[in-house]
Design a protein around this nucleic acid. Structure first.
Length: 185
DNA sequence: TCCGGGATTGACT
DNA sequence: GTCAATCCCGGAC
């Protein structure tokens, strides 16, 4: 499968969030590959989006959101969880990223079950902090180039039938934007 | 400096 | 349905 090129991410964050559905997230640990098909995403933009980490200004945490597209943005939250994003925005916009909320296990399911200490396929990777645990993604993967074949990258994948648009999960402000995207089962 | 709360999860009632 | 876990960030002071 071909890795998605830099240009893929150089579009409006909302467009990229939709286009990432069905693509394949690959994690290489040593010489073993584990992967999942992206099934849910959310778009977080710049100063037009009060729910975005990049709403106010550039900081130490959010600085990659203001940099090159196709780069990973991993942040730590609730004292115990990591969430995984990809920087995406059109060239005129200063910041933006797509949160990967859910994947369907693809390759290395046994390894994923081990990482999660759980067997149940349904609950293995169906949440933003579940999939980072499943793929062993941590703050060490902050700022990685996802367009290169290294520890983490994203490739082409399946065609999507239909996209369901909803308000984003777990936010206070910006609920009016339908920027949560899911594939229909 | 300090302190409130978070793009969540899983265990328990 | 309710709630604790747990630590880092960022805005306020």
């Amino acid at each position: 499968m071909n890795i998605l090129p830099r240009e893929f991410y150089q579009k409006d964050t909302v467009i990229v969030a939709k286009k990432l559905l069905g693509k394949k997230l690959v994690r290489k640990i040593g010489n073993q590959e584990i992967s999942g098909i992206i099934t849910e995403t959310e778009a977080y933009r710049h100063n037009d989006d009060p729910a975005s980490h990049a709403f106010r200004k550039i900081t130490d945490r959010n600085k990659v959101m203001f940099g090159d597209v196709g780069i990973s943005y991993v942040y730590f939250t609730y004292g115990m969880h990591y969430c995984f994003n990809v920087v995406a925005k059109k060239s005129k916009v200063p910041a933006g990223a797509v949160l990967i909320r859910s994947i369907k296990p693809d390759k290395g399911i046994k390894k994923i079950q081990g990482n999660r200490n759980l067997k149940d396929l349904k609950n293995l990777t169906n949440g933003p902090a579940k999939l980072t645990q499943a793929l062993r993604i941590t703050k060490e993967h902050y700022g990685m180039d996802l367009t290169k074949k290294s520890e983490i990258y994203i490739t082409e994948g399946n065609k999507i039938k239909k996209i369901i648009e909803s308000p984003r999960i777990g936010i206070k402000n910006g609920k009016e934007f339908l920027w949560n995207f899911k594939v229909m089962d």
